[in-house]
Design a binder for these strands. Structure first.
Lengths: 335, 335
DNA sequence: CTGTTAGCGCTTTCAG
DNA sequence: CTGAAAGCGCTAACAG
C-alpha cells in the first residue's frame, strides 16, 4: 500500500542524465551546467521528487538535527524558550528532535535514544543530565548546552542567569522594605537553579542580620506551591514576606493568600517571584520579580551549540547572564 | 576532530562473529543464541557501540519519526497538548520532530522540510495546511491528523472539539442570564476553530432574538485582546457581556476591564472563555468557560495517526469531541 | 542459529 | 562539466 517513493535514479532516467547529476542539482555547492540542471529540475517536478534526507545524512554523517530535552513545558517560561530555540535552529537549517522529561527525573531512557538518533547537538532546557551520559556525549564529541541547570561534569556548556544575585537582591529588597518574617519557597530540591537562588537569598538575609523565617518546597508547580502556602500560613505569626523561586509559584502564593486567607498583597504579605513571565505583569498580580534574560539566554545557548557543532568541539563554557530586578507592586512600600 | 563512531562491523570483529549477528542482537524479533548474544553485548559495551538509527531507517524505510507542527505555543492549551503528544509517542517508540510556525502563516517552507525528513506521520496542532501540501501528503501516503483546525481537503484526518455547540451554549447562556448587549471577541480570522465558535454563538443569539452587539478580533493574543477590549468599551453604552474565542483572550478582557475601566466581572460585565486552561480556574478569574477535552483530543489524534501509519493509510476520519460548559462565576447570576 | 550477500538512496572522489 | 564506481552503517533474505 505504501507508495514507493521517487528516487534520484528515476529522475536521472527521465532526464536522461546520470544519477550523480541529479544529486548535484540538490547540493548547493556542486557545479552543474544550467542546461542539465533545468532538465533535471523539470523531471524532478514531474515525478514529485524530494531528496531523502536520511540517505543524505548517512553519507554526510550529519543529521542536521538537534535534540532538545525539556521539562516543565507547562511553565510559560520554558514554552517561550523552546519557541525561541526552534525559531533559531529552523533559521539555521537544523531540525529539532523533541524530548520531554518529567521534571528532573529519568533522562536515562531518553538519553540513549538521543545518542542513537545521531543528533549533532543537545540542548537541555531545565533538565539535568546524569554524569555518565554527559561523559558519553563528551566521548562522542556531541556538544551539549544546558540552559538553567548545571551538571558537575566538565565538557558540558551551561548558560544560566545569575540566580545567586537574583536571590540576593530579593533578600536585600525585602529587608529594605522593612520585612522581618521572610519565608522562602523553593522549587525542586534537586535543581541547581533553585539552590543558587536560595543561597543568594539566605546570604543576603544573613548579611542584614535577619534569619529566614521558614522554608517550604513547591516543586515549581502551582498546586504544590498552594499547598506550601497553606502550611506557611497555618499558624500565626505568619510570614510577612515570601520569596518564591519562580513566578509560577509566586502567583500560586498570591492566589492562595487572597482566596483562602483573605490576605492582601502587598498590604499584609509581600511576594517576590523569579523569571518575569508574562503573567507577572498582569494587573491582577503586578508581581515584583527578578527578570531572567530569556531571549538572550536561549540565543546565547543556541549560538554556542551551533559553534561547537561546526568547530567540532569547542572548549565548553559556563556563562552566567545578569538578571534585572523588576519592581512592581507586590512588595509593600514600592515606589 | 569528530571522533569516528563505532560500527557494528567493529563490534563483530571484537566479538569474533559476523556483522549480521551484531545486527540481530539489536533487533528485538531476530533469533540469536544466548552465547553469541552475550559475546556481542560485551564487545558492544567495551566499545561503547550504539546502533545508528539513520542507517536503520534507510533500509527499513521507517524513520519512527512524527513531525509535529505547532503554532501558538505561548498558549498553555497547546503547550500542554504538545506535552501529552510527546508522552504518547515516546511511549510508542516514536520521536517527535518539532516545527513551530507563526500562527496560521507560512507552513509552506516547513512542509517541504517535513516531506524531505521522511517523517512517517504529521500532527498539526492549531496550524493549518495549504491544500497542495495536503494533497502531496496523500499522494505519498503520509498520514496527517489535525487537531483543532480543518482543511478543505479530503485525505486528512481531523480531531476537533465541538466548537459550534460550545459557541452555541455560550450564546444561550448569556441570554439566559439576562444579557442583551453581547459582544464576540474572535481569534484569528482565518482559523476554522474560531469561525465555528462564532457561528454557533451567533446562531444561538439569533434563536433567542438577540443580535450581536459588537464583534472584534483579538488574534488569540493577549495584547490584541486587550486592545480589542478598549475599542469595545470606548463608547457607552458598552457591552454587558463578552464571549471570547479562547480563555487566553477572556483573561485579557477581564484584566483590561478591571484595571483600565474599573469595571467588575461579573457585576458590570460578564465574560465567557473557551478551553478551560488552568488559568481559568484561578480564584482571581474563576472564569466560566467551555472546556475542550484536551487530553482526549490529543490521545485520539495520536492513536489515529499511529493506526494510519501502521495500516498504511486508513481512510481519514473527521472527529468532533463534545465540549463541556464549566460554570464558574464570571457570568452574573451564576448559581 | 549463523555467515554471506545484496542493497536502502544518496554523496563524493576520480577519470574522462 | 559529467558519468562511473565506491561506499555510509545497517537489515533482510538466503543458504548452510
Amino acid at each position: 500500500m505504501k507508495k514507493k517513493s521517487v528516487t534520484s535514479r528515476e529522475v536521472a532516467q527521465l532526464a536522461g542524465v546520470s544519477q550523480s547529476a541529479v544529486s548535484r542539482c540538490f547540493s548547493p555547492k556542486a557545479s552543474i551546467s544550467k542546461k542539465t540542471r533545468d532538465k533535471v529540475l523539470e523531471a524532478a517536478r514531474q515525478l514529485g521528487y524530494r531528496p531523502n534526507t536520511i540517505a543524505r545524512s548517512l553519507i554526510t554523517r550529519s543529521s542536521r538535527t538537534i535534540a532538545v530535552v525539556v521539562s516543565q513545558l507547562d511553565n510559560p517560561f520554558y514554552a517561550l524558550t523552546l519557541a525561541k530555540a526552534s525559531e533559531y535552529f529552523q533559521a539555521e537549517g537544523y531540525h529539532l528532535l523533541l524530548f520531554l522529561v518529567s521534571d528532573d527525573g529519568n533522562t536515562e531512557g531518553v538519553m540513549s535514544e538521543i545518542l542513537e538518533s545521531q543528533a549533532e547537538g543537545i540542548l537541555m532546557l531545565a533538565a539535568s543530565l546524569a554524569t555518565p551520559f554527559a561523559q558519553e556525549c563528551v566521548d562522542r564529541s556531541i556538544p551539549v548546552v544546558m540552559i538553567n541547570r548545571t551538571v558537575d561534569s566538565a565538557g558540558v556548556s551551561q548558560v544560566s542567569s545569575d540566580n545567586y544575585h537574583g536571590g540576593h537582591w530579593a533578600g536585600r529588597y525585602l529587608v529594605a522594605q522593612g520585612h522581618s518574617r521572610i519565608a522562602f519557597l523553593n522549587g525542586l530540591p534537586t535543581s541547581s537553579t533553585g539552590a543558587y537562588r536560595r543561597l543568594g537569598f539566605l546570604d543576603a538575609l544573613a548579611l542584614e542580620g535577619v534569619s529566614c523565617w521558614a522554608e517550604e518546597c513547591g516543586d515549581y508547580r502551582f498546586d504544590k506551591a498552594s499547598e506550601a502556602t497553606r502550611r506557611l500560613f497555618a499558624k500565626s505569626p505568619y510570614p510577612d514576606a515570601i520569596f518564591a523561586a519562580n513566578d509560577h509559584m509566586a502567583i500560586a502564593v498570591i492566589e492562595t493568600l487572597r482566596s483562602e486567607f483573605g490576605l492582601r498583597v502587598p498590604e499584609d504579605v509581600s511576594v517576590i517571584g523569579f523569571d518575569d513571565t508574562p503573567v507577572a505583569s498582569w494587573p491582577s498580580f503586578h508581581l515584583t520579580t527578578v527578570r531572567q534574560p530569556r531571549e538572550e539566554m536561549v540565543a546565547t545557548a543556541s549560538r554556542l551549540l551551533l559553534e561547537q557543532i561546526r568547530e567540532g568541539q569547542l572548549s565548553p563554557v559556563q556563562l552566567t547572564l545578569p538578571v534585572v530586578p523588576v519592581i512592581r507592586s507586590s512588595v509593600r512600600g514600592a515606589v
